[in-house]
Design a protein around this nucleic acid. Structure first.
Lengths: 239, 239
DNA sequence: CCCCTTATGTGCGTTAGCGTACAGAGTTTG
DNA sequence: CAAACTCTGTACGCTAACGCACATAAGGGG
């Protein structure tokens, strides 16, 4: 992750030079995101971009029959709404709040204005978008080659990396939707992890007890994405 | 696809205003890409970007154990090397020539100069990158939810959309690498398609006979991606 | 307290795709 | 022309995940 985790501040914004950040500050509006809230529907225009603080947002690809898969996750290290500055305005994917919390909201037009100054903010947002590309690519390969156990580990690690504590408020049903697998499959895999003493859970609350243990079980995809985020979004490289 | 298929010209470049294109023309170098050639290795710096004409390039995500999956395909409608202007310089994925042919090559630094003029070229490249994002996302969901038969149809359609004729030079072994499945699985699915009279093939040459037939069998992923490319990269929207 | 809803556990049979092995057919090479 | 190699076809057991059907358990609201 880009900077030591400060959940009072979005790490992406934290990489901006003070001058840039000061220009934006008056327009950043702190909002509370609730579990399940939709920030962007397939093909719908977004009015704002969101810089999560302690909240987590999932980018989901939903199919005609309702089946879905998470293609990327965005937390304090990123921003929801890249399609605004990328020029397409909309995307075919949905953005759903996966973990309730705070975020900073900015009017889409203001972000675009900032982007088109072609300064540090543009460079930063583009590097972030590339990191997002990597996350999606790795998700695709992980979906193909790794089993549910490994993917659950990856998902848990990606999630708690973006949370201040070790607790996740999330039912197995919802995790299954994210991973695009059966709920029963998640029950089984989560059961293994609990038996192994890595996590404990109860009716929609999951606690990560042994993080190194998860890291030992996770597939390489987790590390690939993490390293690429670190590389693309650290202070030395960006500014 | 963005414009009526002209394999003498890259469609992305074709969307540029004449003035912009003329500035680039002297630096565009026509090169021949051979089957299997690597345009970019994982983590390696790219010296050029490539605008395919009648060639096709696959973006592959390769894992430690050698297993791979195609995460996107680039033909005359696009460009290989988005990481150069996105700021990361490298990517963890590989770019491999999937179908031999011509491409226009441009020195990375010249593309970046053009990009940082913050004019039409920048807008165009960013929209293209968003289309690429969509393709990757849809690939991820397709890997999860659709069977080899459907994915093979999708792959065949994506490929011949980017070729002047109906013939593909490609062994089943290579297709399997792209899709991230077993070679035998491709043999089986291709056999079905041949029996149904949709394609015919022989030792590394595949002919698409009944394109509408393929479209009837393919999963929705093909259309989603195609429509998003059309939306993002057509003359009315871009310039 | 009891009902109702929600979350999790479990146990089937089914299936798609895997790993492996090998056979035949076509192509290249010496 | 024969040998070596490449590409495709086929078969068989195995496994992960699926779809479905329930069972159990834990809150929550009246």
């Amino acid at each position: 992750m880009p900077v030591p985790c400060d959940f009072q501040q979005n790490a992406l914004l934290g990489l901006l030079p003070e001058e840039e950040l000061n220009r934006l500050l008056p327009d950043l509006e702190r909002v509370t995101l609730t579990l399940g809230q939709s920030l962007s529907e397939s093909g719908q225009h977004m009015n704002h971009v969101y810089f999560p603080l302690d909240s987590i947002v999932s980018l989901l690809c939903v199919m005609e029959n309702g089946a879905s898969t998470e293609i990327a996750v965005v937390g304090y290290e990123g921003v929801v709404g890249v399609s605004l500055f990328m020029g397409g305005e909309t995307t075919p994917s949905r953005a759903i709040v996966q973990s309730a919390g705070q975020a900073l909201r900015l009017k889409g037009q203001l972000l675009k204005n900032e982007f088109y100054r072609a300064g540090p903010m543009q460079r930063l947002l583009l590097r972030y978008t590339q990191a997002l590309l990597t996350q999606m690519a790795q998700t695709a390969v992980c979906n193909r080659h790794h089993n549910v156990d490994q993917q659950l580990c990856r998902w848990l690690l990606l999630s708690i990396d973006r949370l201040p504590g070790n607790e996740l408020i999330m039912t197995q049903e919802l995790i299954a939707n994210m991973l695009g697998v059966r709920r029963e499959g998640v029950t089984e895999s989560a059961g293994k992890l609990q038996k192994a003493g890595l996590i404990s859970y109860n009716r929609g609350r999951i606690n990560v007890i042994d993080r190194p243990g998860l890291e030992a079980r996770v597939c390489e995809c987790y590390a690939v994405v993490k390293e690429e985020y670190d590389r693309l979004l650290n202070h030395n490289n960006v500014m």
